[in-house]
Amino acid sequence: MKELSLHILDIVQNSIKAGAKNIEIIINESTADNLMTIEINDNGSGMSKEFLKKVKDPFVTTRTTRKMGMGISLFEAAAVQCGGGLDIESELGVGTKVKASFELMSIDRAPLGDMAETMMTIISGSPEPEYLYRHTKDGKVFELDTVQLKEILGDVPLDMPEVLSWITGYIKEGLAELNI
């Protein structure tokens, strides 16, 4: 995948399929530490210890169309190729945490890409869970919390086109303030 934001879109689909009600996407960029981290935390069904052990193997999947699942393996490869790595913690009935780290300035690090489009795509595809997207860069923070948006919107659904356009614009402008 060309962008880290595409991996995020892909990994969040796992959280949604695991029935998560709350999904957090936490991105941290620190120039001083030359470090970027991406965390995706959910309170979905979680994985058994046995499944967790083999989940990074591309020949492991929960889907039924074929016996391969590339999502986690590709995300790990994107991290490893620029001096980072990927950790997964998971507990059945509690949820899953996926944390990838990247050397921020590495020439082999894929660009973050379009996070506004990724969030809009996630929310339009599955508006039911609550999403918290927090992006920190060198101490400055941008945050989008669907709990807050739903409070403002009341009966108007999150996946109305006008609302989705607003979300895309809000994220684009918020990240631009952080020079992202």
């Binding site: 995948m1 879109l9 379009d114 489009e117 595809g125």
Partner: peptide
């Protein structure tokens, strides 16, 4: 919008439709 679709460029296609 599975891994295969996303990797092949489904996200911009979806957004273009919207």
């Amino acid at each position: 919008m599975a891994t295969c679709g996303i990797a092949a460029g489904a996200r911009p296609v979806l957004n273009a439709f919207m």
